[in-house]
Design a protein around this nucleic acid. Structure first.
Lengths: 211, 211
DNA sequence: CGGTTAACGGGACTACAGACCCGTTAACAA
DNA sequence: TTGTTAACGGGTCTGTAGTCCCGTTAACCG
């Protein structure tokens, strides 16, 4: 993120290196959509990126590490959240965002691929966990405000509510052939809010939400 | 399943073939746990199974098709469901079953792997969808009885309720590093039941639940 | 039983992903 | 600028996953 001073024995993230990284990540994304996760190979990605394959093998080494780096990049681009006055509307907005993202052929394939990568490699898994941690936390304030408004009980774990909205959409994407439509998104939001109102997501004691 | 008559040009699923299939599926499962999905290769599986690698390549051809066959096998072994007198207890039983399965290192790795396979290959995806369709339907009667008892509204889609129980557990498994404990299972069951009581899973009109 | 042939298995062959070597380019400091 | 060296890239080599050929085994039939 920041710019480092370069002393002897120091990395050089400047111009060329950054350009190579961007080209490779973009090429990897393209290749991912075209040939799918399992058929990805670094030689092909290097060719697409117009970069020496030695470079790709030296910097990333494996497909899954490259995917982990893609996740870092994805996490860096933060998305804006809406803030209407009601928890249901906010969670509906979140659900629709997730639904539109996963339903889009390109983005959907990308998300499936990073999940597959996380299953295959622990570093990719770590990167994926960080990514979702960030994304989920971005929506937590909506839930906190709902608590302050008295819509849902004191002590409710905000992140659990936000996850409860996402979960059914991902589950549907991965384990069924049904379309990810707006109705599914709305149901996910309604279900999470109903459960939150019922006090299901209250923390048991004074323990942090993220152990 | 059934036994066929063998006319010229007919398959021979008898003795040896079945034995080979069983040995290969078992070896694939072992290999999966030991080296992980991404490092699976058919030559190694053939060696583990004590079977000619030509056989494995001829019958399955790719890792993902072998995984699809594993899913057929998994779907064939049906599990018993509990039937207490209350929806919450039934859904808690379901949630605990899913939680214990996914939390078990062996089974957890297996389930992650078949999901990864489904992401990589459309045939494996189809097999996975069938598998979950069966598993989810097995628990639907609990929800139907709850409707008859008047616990939840008429017109509730039973499968959607059962999926709502599983979803948060799978989401937690795939996108976080948090442990899949009993508390998570209970929360999943409580959330689904609360949403069902609120009428979130009623079908919009007289349309079938599975389009 | 014996004949037919689906299915298995050993071993040779091939293509190519990934490793390695070493010369070239261009960040960064002075 | 100029020097230093991190990082890039072309070319070559190698291990091995996956294919192919062909002889062997054992299901299934009559």
């Amino acid at each position: 993120m920041g710019s480092e001073r370069a002393e002897p024995g120091t990395i050089r993230p400047g111009g060329r290196t950054a350009r190579v990284r961007a080209a490779v990540l973009r090429a990897a994304e393209d290749a991912l959509i075209e040939v799918g996760f399992s058929r990805l190979d670094l030689t092909d990605i290097a060719r697409r990126a117009g970069v020496g394959k030695t470079t790709v093998y030296r910097r990333w080494g494996t497909v899954t590490r490259l995917m982990a780096d893609m996740l870092l990049e994805m996490a860096a681009q933060s998305l804006p959240r809406t803030e209407t006055g009601s928890l249901l509307s906010d969670m509906q907005a979140h659900a629709r965002l997730v639904q539109r993202t996963l339903a889009d052929p390109r983005q959907g394939a990308l998300f499936k691929a990073v999940i597959a990568a996380a299953i295959c490699d622990s570093r990719a898994a770590e990167a994926l966990h960080r990514f979702y941690d960030i994304r989920i936390r971005e929506w937590a304030p909506c839930v906190e405000q709902a608590i302050e408004r008295g819509e849902i009980p004191e002590g409710t774990d905000p992140c659990e509510v936000v996850r409860a909205v996402s979960a059914p959409l991902y589950y549907r994407l991965l384990t069924t052939a049904y379309p990810l439509d707006e109705a599914a998104a709305d149901r996910a939001a309604e279900a999470a809010v109903a459960a939150a109102r019922a006090g299901v997501f209250r923390r048991p004691l004074a323990s942090p939400s993220q152990p």
